[in-house]
Every structure is written in structure tokens, then in C-alpha cells.
Design a protein around this nucleic acid. Structure first.
Lengths: 215, 215
DNA sequence: CGAAAACTGTACCTTCAGTACAGTCCGGGG
DNA sequence: CCCCGGACTGTACTGAAGGTACAGTTTTCG
């Protein structure tokens, strides 16, 4: 019982590393069992097929990202009481955390699976969906608080804004990979931060003659 | 000579449809040659391997997206002289055009390839890179014009803003697929539009006694 | 007409996911 | 102490997919 879950975790660890390094499709089961020191039968004892492995990774990722998000935003809440400041701070902290993680932050797992053939498997699709929905509802909740205190400058649907933050993260991951520029992800997190500022933060009252901020 | 390129085009047509419907990995060469009515040898006469097919799709896509972008922004330029209005209008038109295209607008091809194993092939990577760079430099050029006329409200790097629009498109594609909500893409295009408005558009001058939007 | 381009046909190789199923090892409860 | 079930191993195999090699055939165009 104990030993079984330990092996399963080891397979997931190895798979995660490999998937982040090379993508899901390029990660072969043979390779994983070789590194884990088990046999093919052993692998299929734990996972009924490769989709099941993807599911395992996705579940793990969901937990990890929950920890990550509540970590940064929890810390932000310690540092400020103002919901807007908390969100802005949280995004900055998140950008930092995502930069620290070498080539592969957890979000990559979802991104790596989210546009693949595997998505046609119902369960994988559901798991990806649940991951994305988790992130955006996390943001959505905070945006609700902010909008209470600071009426948005434009009439917006907060669900769309929440998804926007997610899109910038996913898009940032895709573009970081595609352009070979790892900095794009944190950069886009800060763009999300900018958007929130522009949307909610009141302008400092300008003294007459003072120009708005230019580049 | 003529016939050769015609066959090549037919293979690309079939491949494009299949890839948009099922993803690149799930599209088999056998399937393509069957539908094209050619043999395997015939296929490999035109494409040295599957990466080469991806390259072909990417090249085509680059042309198509060039046409799409200059189409919508050209039309927008006909409708307004103001660079900001042109951009806002262009984004709206783009959102409409992308909604029209059923499940598979051209961007999907890049998205479908951009986070796959194939990306580890140098040429494919270069092509994906060039596609993304094309889109963002297109946006970047227009943002330059806008910033001339309207000083941005926050100090921003216009390259980052250009990439932000791209990220919202890519992220929108990924989330549309992942959440099974096709509307997310156009929705996020409009969020990009919002961002540009917030960043550049001057607020309507307030009459005395009128409150600023903030609480 | 002739040469190159555009294929066809056949045979074969490798990798990979997945199946089937019998046998083994091992720790804990009765 | 033994047996039961969870956690595997071993062996053998299948089918799909990407790809190679290469000789032969048809088509097209200058």
C-alpha cells in the first residue's frame, strides 16, 4: 500500500521532469520505466495508459498551483490590507516565483497538454478545464473584492478580466517557448499588473500643468 | 513542375484541415496520403519528413495571417485617420474575423505546433518564432504611431504591449480549446482592445463637480 | 524526342503504446 | 506460520506510425 504510492510518485516525478524538458509526446514510457527502474508491466499497473499518466500530472499540478497561488497572494495579504494592492503585489510576487523556476514552472504542464491530441480524451480535457477554471476563479474572487472598493474605469465583465490574467500567463508560456525568450512570461505577468492598475487604480490628482506619465 | 506544386498544395490543404481538427500529432501521414490519393513515396517526395510538413503549414500560415492582418487593419485605416482608432477598430474587426472562422482560424496552426515536441526541431522552432515575431512587430508598428499621438498613461515598453496582444490571442486560443469555450478568443481580443484604450485613450474631460470614476 | 520531374510499388526497419497473462516477492493479520 | 493480496516481474506479442531504400514507371515541358 505505502510502497505502491511511493512508486507512483516516483514515476510522476520522473515524468514531470521529462515532460517539462521535452513535451508530453516526446516522453516515452520506455524511457520513464528505465529511469524509474521498473518494468513496463509495473508502469501499467499504476497507470492504465498514457492519458492516465497525463491525468496524474494534471492532478498534481492542480495541487501545486493551488499552493503557489495561495502562497503568493497570502503573502501579499500579509503586506497590505487593500485588495487592489494585494492583487498587484501578488502578481509581482508570482512573476518573481515563475522566473525562479528554471525552464519549467508548473503551468507548463497544463500548457504542454492543453493543445495536444490528448485533449480529445474526455478525462484529460476535464482535468485541463478544471485547472484553468481554478486559476481564473482564484483571480476572479480577488477582482470581485477590488471592484467593490474601486469601481472599474471601463464597464467590464470581471470573469473576462480574470481569464485575461490566465491568458497572459498561458500566452506568456507559449511565447516564451516559441520565441525562445524565457523573460516573456514574467514580462506579461507585469503587463497583467499594468492592466489591473489602469482599470482600477485612481490616478494621482494632477496639479495643473502636470502632464500625464509618458514613456 | 506545375503538377508537383499542385499536389504539394493539396497535401497541405488536407493536412491543415486534419491538424486543425485533431492536432498535429494525431494526424498520420497514412491518413493524409489516403485522402490525397497518393502513395507514401509520393508524400516523401514532397516532404522529407513530418517536420517538413509542419514547416510547410507554418509558411502558409504566415502568408495567410499577413493577409488577415493587413486586411483588417487596412480596412480600419480606411475608416479612420487616428492611429488609436485604427488600432481599436482593427482589433474589433479581427475579433469578428476570428469568430467567423469556425473551429480553426489560422492561429491554431501555430498554437498547435508551438508547444509540441516538434518545437525541438530547429527549423520548426525558427518558423514558429518568425510567425510570432511577425504578429508582434505588426502590432508594435501601430503602437509606435499611437504613442506619438497619445502619451501612454503608464511608462511602458511598447514591445511588451505588442507581445501582450499576441499573448492574449495565443492564450485565448489555448483557453478556448482547454475550456471548450470558443468565445474566449474574441472576448480576449476585446480585452486587448480595452487595455489599449486604458493605456492611451484620454478620459473625457470632466465637468466641474463630476466625480472621477474611483470611489 | 528526351530529360527531368513526379510519382508508384515493394519490402523492410524502428519506436512506441498497449495487451495478455502467468509467475514472483513480500509484508501484515489471523 | 501461513496465506492473502498488493506490488510488482518476465515474456511474448500486436498494431500503428514514422521513416528508409531503391528500382521502376508515368507525366510534363522545353
Amino acid at each position: 500500500m505505502r510502497k505502491g504510492t511511493a512508486t507512483r510518485q516516483r514515476i510522476l516525478d520522473i515524468a514531470e521532469t521529462a515532460v517539462l524538458a521535452k513535451g508530453f509526446g516526446a516522453t516515452s514510457i520506455d524511457e520513464l520505466i528505465c529511469e524509474a527502474g521498473i518494468t513496463k508491466s509495473g508502469f501499467f499497473y499504476h497507470f492504465k495508459d498514457k492519458n492516465d499518466l497525463a491525468l496524474g500530472l494534471l492532478e498534481r499540478h492542480e495541487q501545486q498551483s493551488e499552493i503557489l497561488l495561495s502562497g503568493v497572494f497570502g503573502r501579499a495579504r500579509e503586506l497590505s490590507d487593500d485588495p487592489l494592492q494585494v492583487f498587484l503585489l501578488g502578481l509581482t510576487l508570482l512573476a518573481e516565483r515563475l522566473t525562479e523556476m528554471p525552464a519549467g514552472h508548473p503551468g507548463c504542464i497544463v500548457a504542454s497538454l492543453s493543445y495536444q491530441d490528448r485533449l480529445f480524451d474526455r478525462n484529460v480535457r476535464a482535468a485541463v478545464n478544471s485547472n484553468m477554471a481554478g486559476w481564473s476563479s482564484h483571480f476572479r474572487a480577488m477582482l470581485g473584492e477590488i471592484a467593490q472598493a474601486y469601481p472599474p474605469r471601463l464597464p467590464v465583465n470581471l470573469d473576462h478580466v480574470a481569464r485575461m490574467v490566465c491568458c497572459l500567463i498561458d500566452g506568456g508560456i507559449v511565447m516564451s517557448k516559441g520565441l525562445g525568450m524565457p523573460d516573456v512570461l514574467p514580462e506579461q505577468l507585469l503587463m497583467a499588473r499594468n492592466h489591473i492598475r489602469l482599470l482600477f487604480q485612481p490616478w494621482p490628482t494632477r496639479r495643473p500643468g502636470q502632464r500625464p506619465v509618458a514613456e
